[in-house]
Simulated assay, not measured.
Amino acid sequence: MRVSVPGIPQAILSSAGSTKTISPAAAVERIAEFLAPGNAALITGAGVSVDSGIRAYRGKDGRYMNPNYKPIFYHELIDETSKGFAFRQRYWLRSYLGYPPVRDALPNTTHFALAALQYSSSITQLITQNVDGLHHKAFSDVWNVEKMSERILELHGTLHRVHCKFGHTVDRESFQDRLSAANPQWKAFADNIERTGEQPRTNPDGDVALEGVSYNDFVVPECPSCMLEGKRNSIHKPEVIFFGESIPQDVKERSFLDVAKCDRLFIVGTTLATYSAFRLLKHALELKKPVLYLNLGPTRADGITEVEKIELSSSLLLRDVVRALLGTRAQDDFPIHKMLTSGIHNPPDDSDDDRAPRAAG
Rank of each mutant, 00 (worst) to 15 (best):
T124W: 09
F266N: 07
E286Y: 15
E222N: 04
K288G: 10
V268T: 11
A16I: 00
L42D: 04
T270H: 13
L325H: 08
T271E: 06
V307I: 10
I72W: 06
R323Q: 12
I31M: 02
V102E: 05
G212Q: 12
N295S: 14
P184Q: 03
N144Q: 04
G269Y: 06
M65S: 11
P67R: 15
L210E: 05
E229V: 01
H345L: 15
L106H: 10
L287Y: 08
K289S: 14
A16E: 01
N203T: 03
L281Y: 08
E150V: 02
G38C: 12
A86E: 13
L77N: 02
K338F: 15
D51G: 01
I43H: 12
R161I: 09
H236L: 04
A16T: 01
P9R: 11
D263Y: 07
V170I: 13
K237E: 02
L155M: 14
Q331S: 09
A277N: 09
T169L: 13
D191E: 15
A26R: 12
N346V: 12
P248E: 07
A273Q: 15
I54E: 02
I72L: 14
A105Q: 09
H136S: 11
P37D: 00
T341Y: 06
A26T: 03
D354S: 09
V259Q: 14
R195Y: 14
A32R: 06
L318E: 02
A360P: 02
Q176K: 14
S122N: 10
Q129I: 05
D104H: 12
C164L: 04
W186K: 08
P238K: 00
R63D: 01
G327Q: 06
F242L: 09
A209Q: 04
A86L: 15
L114E: 08
F218V: 01
P71L: 01
K338G: 02
G38Q: 03
V322K: 10
E173V: 15
P9C: 03
L77I: 12
M148K: 09
P357I: 04
F166M: 07
L114D: 07
R329Q: 15
I304P: 03
L265F: 11
S49G: 00
Y293K: 03
H236R: 03
A284I: 05
P347C: 13
D217M: 02
D250F: 00
I310K: 12
R55E: 08
S225P: 00
Q125F: 13
V50M: 07
D353F: 10
R30D: 11
T274Q: 11
N39K: 05
P204D: 04
K231H: 02
P37N: 00
